[in-house]
Design a protein around this nucleic acid. Structure first.
Lengths: 207, 207
DNA sequence: CGATTCCCATACCTGTGCGTACTTTAACGC
DNA sequence: GCGTTAAAGTACGCACAGGTATGGGAATCG
C-alpha cells in the first residue's frame, strides 16, 4: 500500500512548474479543456490533474468552479478585443489591404487554436448570458473595423453596413467550414476571390 | 409518506402521450436538450423526466446512453440531407433565384430552431468523429448545389468553386451572426446585397 | 528562532448520473 | 380466463464531481 508521503511526492513530481500557481495557469488549463471538450468538460478535478495539484489548491485560488469560468471569459475578452486593434496596426496594411489581411486570418497557422476557443465560447454563449456579452462586444469591434475599411474605400453608408456584415459572415463562415471543407479551395485562391468580390464596386446585377 | 402506487399514478399523469413511446419520441426529446444545453446535457434521467417516464423505459428502448445519441445523429443526417434536396424542388426557384432562396433560409421564421440544432451538432463534431461524418456529408451536398447554380449561370469551373465556397461561408456566417448582430442589417437589405455581390460578374478589382 | 501566512494535500460529505436486476402492469393471442 | 410479451416502474450499486474542513510544509517577517 502506498503511504501518504509517497503519494505526496508523486503528486509533486507531476508538477511542471514549482513556483506557486497563478490565476493565469488555471485559466490556461481551463481554456485547453474548453477546446478539447467544452464548458461542461471543465471539471475541477480535471483542472487539478492537468496542473499536477489537488482540489485543495483550486479552492484556495477560487471560491467555486464557476469563478474560473468567469476568469477565463474575462481573459479571452481582453485578449480578443486587444487583438483586433493590434492586428490593425501590426499588419501595416492600408486600404483594401486591411480587408485582405482580415480575411486571411482564419487560415493562418496558429489561428486554428484561436478559432477553436472562439467557437467554443460562441457555443457556450448560445445558452448563457455571460459569454454572450463578451461575444457581442467582440463582434461589434470587428464590424466597426470593417465599416472603416469600406467607408475609406468610398462606399455610401448603407453599402458600408451591408458589405461589413457580408465580410464578417465570410470570415466567420470560413473559420467554421475550412475545417471540414478544408481542401475544397486553395487558400490563396479563396482569399483573392473573397477580396475581389467583396470590394468590387456594385455593377449591374446579372439576370 | 407517499405510497408506491401513488407515485406510479403521479408519474402516469405526467405522461403527455398514453401510447407507448417510440424511438422518435426519445430522439425528439434528446434533440430538444441538445439545443437547450448541449450533447453532454443529454442525461438519461432528464430525457425520462421530459417524457414522463423512468429509466426502466429508456433502458428497454436503448442498450446504453450513447445509443440515443447515435439515433439522434442518424435522424438529423437523414432529415437534413433530404431537406437540401427538397428545398430545391419546393421553392420552384430558377437560376439565381435558387441562390436567393438559399441565402434567405437562415432568416426564415422556423429556421432558428433548425440552425440551433445544426450548430450544436457542429460543435459536437469538433471533438467527436461520428457527428463529423454527418456534417461533412451535409456540407458536401449543399456545396454541390451551389456549384450547380453558378455553373448554370455560366461561370467557369474555378470560379464556380470559389463562389460556391464563398456563398456557403456567407450562409454559415449569417446563421451564426444574425443572432448576436441581429438588428445590424435588415433582412431584405442583406439578402439583396448578398445575392447581388455573389452573382455579380467579375469586373476589375478596385485598387 | 518563533509565529504567521501562503499554497497545497487529505479526507470526507453530498448529490448526480450511468447502468443493472428485478418487479409490475396492461394488452393481446388463444 | 390465462399465459405471454411489450413497456414500463422500483431499487440498488457505483463512480464521479462539487464543495468543505482540516492538516501540513515551506517561506517570510519580526
Amino acid at each position: 500500500m502506498e503511504t501518504a508521503t509517497a503519494k505526496a511526492v508523486r503528486a509533486r513530481t507531476k508538477r511542471v512548474k514549482e513556483t506557486p500557481l497563478t490565476e493565469a495557469d488555471w485559466v490556461d488549463a481551463a481554456t485547453g479543456i474548453l477546446v478539447e471538450e467544452n464548458v461542461r468538460g471543465i471539471k475541477v478535478e480535471k483542472l487539478c490533474a492537468k496542473l499536477g495539484v489537488t482540489k485543495g489548491s483550486f479552492y484556495w485560488h477560487f471560491k467555486k468552479r464557476s469563478d474560473v469560468l468567469i476568469a477565463l471569459l474575462k481573459a479571452w475578452r481582453r485578449r480578443t478585443t486587444l487583438n483586433v486593434i493590434q492586428n490593425i496596426a501590426k499588419s501595416g496594411a492600408q486600404g483594401m489591404g486591411r480587408l485582405r489581411s482580415m480575411i486571411e486570418m482564419p487560415r493562418h497557422a496558429k489561428a486554428g487554436e484561436v478559432a477553436a476557443i472562439e467557437m467554443s465560447i460562441r457555443d457556450w454563449a448560445r445558452r448563457v448570458e455571460m459569454p454572450k456579452e463578451a461575444i457581442v462586444e467582440v463582434d461589434t469591434i470587428r464590424i466597426e473595423y470593417f465599416e472603416q475599411i469600406f467607408r475609406d474605400a468610398g462606399f455610401d453608408e448603407a453599402e458600408v453596413k451591408r458589405r461589413s456584415y457580408l465580410t464578417y459572415c465570410v470570415l466567420m463562415g470560413d473559420s467554421i467550414l475550412h475545417r471540414t471543407l478544408g481542401g475544397y479551395v486553395e487558400r490563396r485562391d479563396y482569399v483573392d476571390a473573397a477580396v475581389a468580390i467583396l470590394s468590387q464596386p456594385r455593377g449591374d446585377v446579372g439576370s
